[in-house]
Design a protein around this nucleic acid. Structure first.
Lengths: 351, 351
DNA sequence: GTGAAAGCGCTAACAT
DNA sequence: ATGTTAGCGCTTTCAC
């Protein structure tokens, strides 16, 4: 009563063989004009549409590009907009596959790829893959990979430059003690790059790098809070913080306020924008803008170029980041006093 | 040289038949423990993952839900976030299929459905479908359909109430002449509902409905501008405008300013929020908030309920809309003078 | 407990 | 010009 109409139904109704229908469908040479017309009629009448699945099982090419994401959250959603824009006039169709809860945290992308490739999709954009897409039989472009994805074409923000921009901006305001909030060691490559940019800017300005000013934050609320608290409790506390992650930046603000500091009078905060919906987009907060949509767009363009046979123009795009000056940064205070809250923490008089 | 590893590869390597491997994969009864272990080993070793496509061609159920969108733009992207959230602990996987440029404007959803259903997906969420999903062999939930989608479960915002809220708010401020900006007749059902709410609120307040105050706007920039210009050029022009669409609301603002009016002093404007990124989200603009993410979430929940065998709790959810008071509305001016710009348009002295 | 064989909807040789 | 056949990767009887 409800099974979908197949090529066989069309063939029977039109009084021809399935092969003939297939030929009509694919505009193959060797079908009488009259037959073509009749088959077309039946197709329209029955509302037949060939099954993507069956077709892709048989064919090498499907004309479908897959975007594989771990989950659909603000970052990937933003990326999808750009990707969709790029797909628009590429002649390809778009399927977004969300690994979802079922997949464990590590290696989901290879599993998805295995499930979909060879069939269903001609190529894939991997969003924030956690491992190197080792043995994939289809072309793959990685966006913002965790590892420095050797070999695979990659699209990411120009993290080094963005971080340097942020740090230099703080230095320009007069800050010398600038804290850095980043992720744990084996995490996103982008965090490393941001630290690189941070260090580079310090070096450029002749400010010695102080490992004490670098803290891990950004993946657990409580851990991050503690990290910021420690950072601000240093005897020679930073007067500014550059956060590699917008979530950490927000945590930093909250903690600072909790500790009785004023932003930006006592502490300047700037962060890298990852989540387009975070409070970082508040008009008050200084950020390094990451061109998320553009990353999606470029990734698709790159993939299309590869699928089109030609080599992509570039195999490792670093998309420009941008400094957005807003009200959360200011020159350092004339005299840096230890935080008020420190007393209650160490229960001693700050020296 | 690089074709993906299939069930046959696993079978050969393990020295068993493909049937046996399949049984292991699906935890079927009747395989020796030792064999299971060996096969599992080989699977791990080869990194084998069964092909979604082949599997779904053979099986009725795939455990995949499809979200079919015409394109990925801000509205659908927002919706996806909610849908993804709902999928998370539903046991289903998510595939988003974007019809894209290839599909003509009308009926894309049925064509997509045909291509995917029966295979690949167990059920689908149709986002803003333009026609009634007539002959679909799989369960379907429609979100914000163009037509009043009789029969099919539907999720939408409570447009009637939202529009009534907006209109009543303006009335409460003292407005009696309130313009309505909507889409052309045979368009989105939501626009009709919003007009219904608008009319209802007027009736409630004993304000006679004036067809002159209803204009078509929202699908072409120029057309919309002209509509607003005409509306504001009326001898007894409205002192407030309720736009069924955020894009029209923005156009209205721009036109008003162009005509030398001040918002909200000379003209109050309130609009329905459709595009989360539009200027409507500016802190200055009064809006009726549409719970877009929630709509996606509820649609998936409904679909999962249907797929789970049980009837869904409700088959036509109207999700609550919310008035967000901001600075673009005010009481009407004491004396309503025809717009300054009118002179240059009609070249006559307003009476 | 295991494997051979049929078939899901479709396409591409290869007949006729 | 059209039909027959084989087979894509997989699951499922049904023999053995």
């Amino acid at each position: 009563m409800n099974s979908r109409v197949t090529i066989r139904d069309v063939a029977e109704r039109a009084g021809v063989s399935v092969a003939t229908v297939s030929k009509v469908l694919n505009d193959r040479y060797g079908v009488a004009a009259a037959t073509v017309a009749r088959v077309r009629e039946v197709i329209a009448e029955l509302g037949y549409e060939s099954s993507l699945v069956a077709r892709s099982l048989r064919n090498r090419r499907t004309n479908v590009i897959g975007i594989l994401v771990w989950a659909i959250e603000p970052f990937s959603a933003e990326l999808l907009k750009g990707a969709a824009r790029a797909i628009r006039d590429s002649g390809y169709e778009l399927v977004v596959y969300s690994a979802g809860e079922g997949a464990e945290n590590i290696g989901w992308e290879n599993r998805c790829l295995s499930r979909l490739s060879g069939t269903l999709i001609d190529g894939a954009v991997l969003v924030t893959p956690t491992v190197h897409a080792s043995r994939s039989d289809i072309p793959v472009v990685a966006v913002d990979p965790h590892t420095g994805d050797e070999g695979a074409p990659t699209v990411s923000a120009d993290n080094v430059r963005g971080a340097a921009l942020a740090t230099a901006y703080l230095i320009g305001l007069g800050h010398r003690r600038i804290g850095f909030l980043g992720r744990p060691p084996r995490s996103l490559a982008s965090t490393h790059q941001r630290e690189t940019g941070y260090r580079g800017a310090l070096a450029e300005a002749g400010i010695p790098f102080d490992p004490d000013l670098v803290r891990v934050a950004g993946y657990q609320e409580e851990t991050s809070k503690e990290a910021v608290r420690e950072l601000l409790s240093l005897p020679d506390r930073p007067t500014a913080i550059f956060a590699a992650n917008d979530v950490s930046a927000i945590v930093a603000m909250d903690v600072a306020v909790t500790l009785g500091m004023r932003v930006p009078d006592d502490l300047s905060i700037i962060g890298f924008d990852n989540v387009p919906e975070s409070r970082m987009t508040d008009p008050a907060l200084t950020t390094i803008d990451q061109p998320i949509q553009l990353m999606g767009q470029r990734a698709v363009e790159m993939l299309v170029a590869i699928l089109g046979g030609g080599e992509p123009a570039e195999t490792d795009a670093q998309l420009p980041t941008r400094l957005v000056e807003r009200a959360s940064c200011a020159p350092p205070p004339a005299t840096v006093r230890p935080i008020a809250g420190l007393r209650s923490v160490s229960d001693g008089v700050p020296r």
